[in-house]
């Protein structure tokens, strides 16, 4: 089954990291990615620019309205995603649990991809 894993983390804490801490974090993520790559489960995955770069669009008159900032202000911010072809939810949970930010208080929201008939 296909799952989207939405990676939520404290963006400000990451921005405030010392260069040394930042390179440790990167090393952890790279190690994680290497393990995941080997399984052939990754369909897609990216890190996102911080929420200060976000733009939200909603209906407006006469044209749709674009505003600065993310859709919702939350304690943790969406910072990246993976799309996985996993065997089942437990598989997706296991790979989510191994993400380095989890140990530092971050979370992952797992969303199964909707399948349409033809």
């Amino acid at each position: 089954m296909k799952y989207l894993l939405l990676i939520y983390d404290n963006e400000q804490a990451n921005i405030n990291k010392s260069p040394e801490d930042m390179s440790n974090t990167m090393a952890e993520w790279n190690a994680y990615m290497d393990d995941l790559q080997k399984t052939g489960k990754i369909l897609a995955g990216e890190a996102l620019q911080p929420t200060m770069t976000a733009t939200t669009v909603r209906a407006g008159n006469p044209a749709p309205l674009a505003t600065d900032g993310p859709f919702a202000e939350t304690k943790e911010q969406l910072g990246g995603f993976f799309m996985l072809e996993a065997t089942d939810l437990d598989d997706a949970i296991a790979w989510s649990g191994k993400m380095p930010h989890i140990a530092h208080g971050g979370t992952v929201e797992i969303r199964p991809i909707m399948e349409f008939d033809q």
Binding site: Y3, D90, A92
Partner: peptide, 14 residues
């Protein structure tokens, strides 16, 4: 069904 909760005994580590 939709979230793919497995019909299986969990792996030893969990």
């Amino acid at each position: 069904k939709d979230a793919g909760i497995p019909y299986s005994v969990p792996a030893d580590n969990i």
